[in-house]
Design a protein around this nucleic acid. Structure first.
Lengths: 244, 244
DNA sequence: TTTCGTCATTAACCTGGGATACTGCCCCTC
DNA sequence: GAGGGGCAGTATCCCAGGTTAATGACGAAA
């Protein structure tokens, strides 16, 4: 594990998407960081079923949470972007029932093993932020259930692309009109409960309809409103979120 | 709103499923209770999109969380049984993106509006428990995504019935070999992303196969192991959970 | 008693999306 | 520069599950 990056030099914190912290809290957070962990694309960050645990903040790169069934069926639960907290379920519930895999090369900020209880004891504000992040992630998963349970294939794909576009945008990843898009069609399929083949069919339709441009690991959405209509997808504007 | 039931007389707390609390914590919890709220079956407990509300603990009865789309499609996210916490997302994230509806007549323990911040400030242990409950509910929703995204209709129904049977059992609801089962087939369908008609077909098959008895609002499962095999569903044994 | 509404049940029909299989491309490695 | 693996893209076939519609059973309301 690399030595920790001092939180004062955090590349994420200046972004408008993140809530400011008090200097005192920042010092405590920084003190609880024990290092950085790098994972290559495709690596398992946290293993399914692992009795972990350490809590991480995703500093750079993309990852996803997933569950697998004994016969190999896989379901992606949600995607993780910079600023997201990983491993909290393992910390609170003693073991993980999902895995986490890196989608790109990933840089993680690692907390000390006793950091979370320490925050609850000494820093109610930070503890509150942790719970906020947990509630926020649950909201994402709530959305995923609706998408997978009640949307058509076309709606699912449109909703996912809009969702990821907006999140990437708020993490400052827009360049020109496009964002980096490291998912393969298999990832999209596994997130949406579809087959790869059908995912491809739907993507073709979206391309031919002029809704998206998706090539060379980059995604552009011509008309966000139109895409939201296609996906029957209107989410809350993302509030300013805490960052640990 | 009815006057609060003193927590020392709580009918839930003695159950083995719940973690004991210290007398000090119990006193604080009790002091934050401002009353009880009764809802009739079918009533809206919390409205979708509602701005912040109060936090409740479900004392008695069944309820469910759900999301609706503009055209009326509905997805049930998960079911709420006695001991579950309601409204935390509203508390943390300023508004609710799901609704809560009562499935049976329901009795809720209401907390003061400032109870949650108070716990974080003064009772790290309780704050931790709140986060535990949030992480636990997210785990349930994670399971729901897998079920709806990757299981067949037969597997979905079997998994849901096993899940509810076990939860009802741990809430002390088994009488003879059956549990109360207040869901209609529409509820099952909406929880599993199926149509009512197909839900009925699958239930018939389970009945004819001798896997379940489901009549008069009661559910019996002959062989839990067999049902788990049908549903490809093996969950963690439920740990002892906190109760607010 | 009748009427009405909610649920369960079943049949008949149809389609969205799964399964399989094959092609071609790109990049990596030897 | 030749194989080989991962991924995108298509076509063909077909079935799990959706849709529509009709029938009962039951309980509440009038």
């Amino acid at each position: 594990m690399e030595p920790p990056l001092p939180c004062t030099a955090c590349p994420l914190r200046p972004l408008a998407a993140f809530k400011p912290v008090t200097p005192l809290e920042l010092a405590s957070i920084s003190a609880s960081k024990v290092g950085q962990r790098l994972c290559t694309a495709g690596a398992t960050v946290l293993a399914e079923g692992q009795a972990t645990t350490r809590v991480y903040v995703l500093l750079a790169g993309w990852a996803f949470r997933f569950k697998t069934m004994a016969d190999g069926r896989r379901q992606i639960l949600n995607f993780l972007l910079p600023g997201d907290l990983l491993g909290l379920q393992g910390e609170m519930l003693a073991n993980l029932t999902h895995g986490v895999e890196a989608l790109t090369e990933v840089n993680l900020c690692a907390f000390a093993t006793d950091a979370v209880p320490g925050f609850f004891r000494d820093h109610p504000g930070i503890a509150f932020d942790i719970t906020w992040l947990a509630a926020h992630e649950e909201r994402l998963v709530d959305d995923a259930v609706l998408t997978v349970g009640r949307r058509t294939a076309m709606e699912r794909v449109a909703a996912l692309l809009v969702h990821l576009y907006k999140r990437a945008a708020s993490a400052g990843m827009v360049e020109g009109v496009s964002i980096p898009f490291p998912l393969t069609q298999l990832h999209i399929a596994d997130a949406l409960g579809l087959s790869v083949v059908h995912t491809n069919r739907v993507l073709q339709r979206l391309r031919k309809g002029g809704f998206i441009r998706l090539e060379g690991q980059r995604l552009a959405i011509g008309d966000l409103h139109a895409m939201q209509r296609v996906g029957h997808y209107w989410e809350q504007p993302a509030p300013r979120r805490p960052l640990l």
